[in-house]
């Protein structure tokens, strides 16, 4: 029974590596692509208008997040560990998407989620 289990696991491992290959990693996008995606957020009363969106970008792209609205919140991009202090409710943050994954972007003070960014 034990040997059968080991064989099953090996078959599984081989199958996983053989089929489909490296579909997760992908090639990095054009580095230094200044025409990278721009995401606009409108803030009102400490919440983002239109609800929390899920947005995507390719690895290597230059991402711009532009915020307009009211308040002087501090925005935190998880994973990349970037902070943006809004002044008069305005601000923008530009960074290279070098880390793959799904990242929460939120208001630091209230912990409220405002955007979810997926970098593939």
């Amino acid at each position: 029974m034990y040997r059968r289990c080991v064989v099953l696991v090996l078959v599984l491992a081989l199958g996983t590596t053989a089929c489909g290959g490296d579909s997760g990693a992908g090639a990095p996008g054009a580095v230094g692509d200044s025409g990278g995606p721009v995401f606009d957020l409108s803030i009102e009363d400490g919440e983002v208008l239109g609800g929390v969106r899920r947005v995507e970008a390719s690895i290597g792209e230059k991402i711009t997040i532009e915020v307009t609205g009211d308040g002087t919140e501090q925005i935190h991009v998880h994973g990349y560990d970037l902070y943006l202090q809004l002044e008069n409710g305005e601000g923008s943050i530009v960074f290279d998407a070098l880390i793959p994954g799904r990242f929460e972007i939120e208001f630091e003070e209230s912990g409220r989620l405002i955007l979810e960014l997926t970098v593939k």
């Binding site: 489909g20 579909s23 935190h76 560990d81 994954g101 990242f103 997926t118 593939k120």
Partner: peptide
């Protein structure tokens, strides 16, 4: 601030 849990995995293919 929180450092944990703000990053999750990409969806499984």
């Amino acid at each position: 601030a929180h450092g944990i849990g703000g990053r999750t995995d990409l969806p499984l293919p």
